[in-house]
């Protein structure tokens, strides 16, 4: 139990710092910004209580907001992601359900399953975030373009991050 807390705290710190100090400084094509930090929400245990998921989502978003001077924007998107996550997990549940203690990572459910899961999570978060950022449905195509391009880059980084995480989180 304590082990889990330490591992997730470490996850949090590493992802926030990578996001704030590296990814936020990238300038890909002018307006593409990958938001890898949502990986923290994505890989929380399947059986995490809903209230804890929402609280963690809120504070993760708020931390990123502090680095980007966007009070509330990332928080609103990560809270929405946290709200949708249980629905996604139910939607793509394996036939015999989830075993206790399983994590939504490729090592537990396979690469294809994780890719589906990641696409759902990333697109949901990015769509919500970029709509809140634009705060209008004018220029909807420009907003959607941002969503698509940034989602692709976030997914690439999410997959790259799996190369580093897999050995640590082998099924036991």
């Amino acid at each position: 139990m304590i082990n889990t807390w330490i591992r997730y705290s470490l996850n949090f710190v590493v992802l926030v710092l990578v996001q704030a100090l590296i990814l936020n400084q990238l300038n890909l094509g002018g307006y593409i910004n990958p938001y890898l930090y949502i990986l923290f929400i994505m890989v929380l245990p399947v059986a995490i209580p809903g209230w804890l998921l929402l609280i963690l989502g809120f504070f993760t978003g708020l931390t990123i907001d502090a680095f980007l001077n966007t009070p509330g924007m990332h928080a609103s998107a990560t809270v929405f992601l946290s709200f949708m996550r249980p629905l996604f997990l139910r939607y793509i549940a394996p036939r015999d359900g989830y075993e206790p203690g399983s994590l939504p990572i490729p090592a537990h459910f396979g690469f294809i399953w994780f890719l589906n899961y990641a696409v759902l999570c990333v697109v949901t978060h990015h769509l919500f975030y970029f709509l809140v950022e634009a705060f209008t449905f004018n220029n909807i195509f420009s907003t959607l373009w941002r969503v698509i391009m940034s989602s692709i880059f976030t997914l690439v980084f999410v997959m790259i991050a799996q190369l580093f995480g897999q050995t640590r989180t082998k099924r036991n």
Partner: peptide, 29 residues
């Protein structure tokens, strides 16, 4: 779960909408 979601989402969107009024809040920056 749904109610808590509404609470946090409202709080977050409140921060977004009131951005200009909250001049002095230097914490989330």
């Amino acid at each position: 779960f749904f109610l808590l979601f509404l609470v946090f989402e409202t709080l977050a969107l409140y921060l977004v909408v009131n951005y200009n009024q909250l001049q002095q809040q230097t914490f989330i920056s």
